[in-house]
């Protein structure tokens, strides 16, 4: 990691005073990623058996959200040099010099410690431990170790993004069982085709930044094959919650349809390999993959709240 804020940020060069706005610090927390993490955490919490007081549920979600924000800030601190080179991330607060790298580090560290200890004190130390593992895995294993070294970076690193439903479940029940592990596996298997579809479109960007994403290292054809393989595993895996009873009929139907659509789009990516149509197919899969995960978890959530009864809002 190099101090990119000194290379690029004019204010960082000329002035020693922090100059970021509140929205810059919010941006450090990667709000869009945070919203997806919060949502999957909420689903883990709602589908868990038993009841949880709404105040405790809100406290859990705040801790998960802040923990996700901490991961984002620490990632932006460490990856400022890469972010500065890539078109998609060049306008982030640290490479732009709106927030000093040291501020991002401090901000992320305080949020990480605050979220973990708050989760432990307010909700559950098991959930706090899982939250700590998530943040540490994302920072040390994914960001610092794997991201710049191996094309398997997002495969293994995806474990961090897959843990929130397990944290939600652990917060609600005080334990971890097979059901949240299946939710974990769904997000874990969803991550590679999701990011590789984006990487196919942004391969030049990753190459310029020296990030060994699969399309950069192994080429487009190999990436397309891997996307298809992961999609074929993901589709049936997505239906498993219905088999285990976490989801009902509506979930089974939705997961089946969404899974088939996912495989169809992955097949298009696999077969269309040249020109604009190939780029379009990859963009389509990337866009749909976000929708896939959102809808899958949304159906699970709505079904639990309407059919199986809402356990979150039942006072203890």
């Amino acid at each position: 990691m190099t101090d990119t804020s000194l290379d690029i940020g004019q204010s960082g060069l000329e002035r020693a005073v922090p100059n970021g706005t509140v929205s810059d610090f919010v941006e450090l927390m990667k709000p869009r990623v945070m919203s997806l993490v919060l949502f999957t955490g909420l689903v883990g919490l709602v589908v868990a058996p038993g009841s949880m007081h709404p105040v405790l549920a809100i406290a859990t979600l705040i801790c998960i959200g802040v923990g996700a924000g901490a991961s984002g800030a620490l990632n932006m601190w460490y990856d400022a040099d890469i972010d500065a080179v890539m078109q998609r991330t060049a306008t982030r607060p640290v490479p732009r010099g709106r927030v000093a790298a040291e501020e991002a580090l401090t901000f992320g560290t305080v949020l990480a410690a605050g979220s973990v200890f708050s989760m432990g004190l307010l909700v559950s130390w098991l959930a706090a431990g899982l939250l700590a593992v998530t943040i540490a895995f994302y920072l040390f294993v994914y960001t610092m170790w794997l991201k710049r070294r191996t094309p398997q970076n997002i495969v293994i690193g995806g474990a961090a993004g897959a843990l929130p439903p397990v944290i939600g479940w652990a917060a609600a029940t005080g334990s971890v069982s097979l059901e949240p592990v299946i939710l974990f596996l769904i997000i874990f298997m969803w991550t590679p085709p999701h990011f590789w579809a984006l990487a196919l479109v942004r391969a030049g960007d990753y190459s310029k930044a020296g990030v060994p994403m699969l399309p950069v290292v192994a080429g487009g054809d190999s990436t397309r094959r891997q996307i298809l393989i992961y999609s074929l595993i993901l589709a049936p895996l997505g239906v498993l919650p219905a088999v285990l009873g976490t989801g009902g009929i509506a979930y089974a139907v939705s997961a089946s349809v969404l899974g088939v659509l996912f495989v169809i789009l992955a097949w298009r990516v696999f077969t269309l390999r040249e020109g604009q149509t190939a780029q379009h197919a990859a963009r389509q899969l990337f866009g749909f993959s976000v929708l896939y995960l959102l809808l899958l978890f949304a159906v699970l959530l709505v079904e639990q709240m309407t059919v199986a009864g809402v356990n979150v809002w039942t006072p203890v």
Binding site: V17, P18, N19, G20, T21, V22, F25, H53, V55, L56, I58, A59, I62, S118, L121, L122, V316
Partner: peptide, 29 residues
């Protein structure tokens, strides 16, 4: 910069107040 620092201070104050309220509510629960 003074304006930004003031806004940041207000935001930090609000967050701290929120944390106090959250800990109070959870304690009561």
């Amino acid at each position: 910069e003074k304006k930004r620092r003031r806004t940041r201070s207000i935001a930090i104050g609000c967050v701290l107040a929120g944390i106090v309220v959250l800990f109070y509510l959870v304690t009561i629960v």
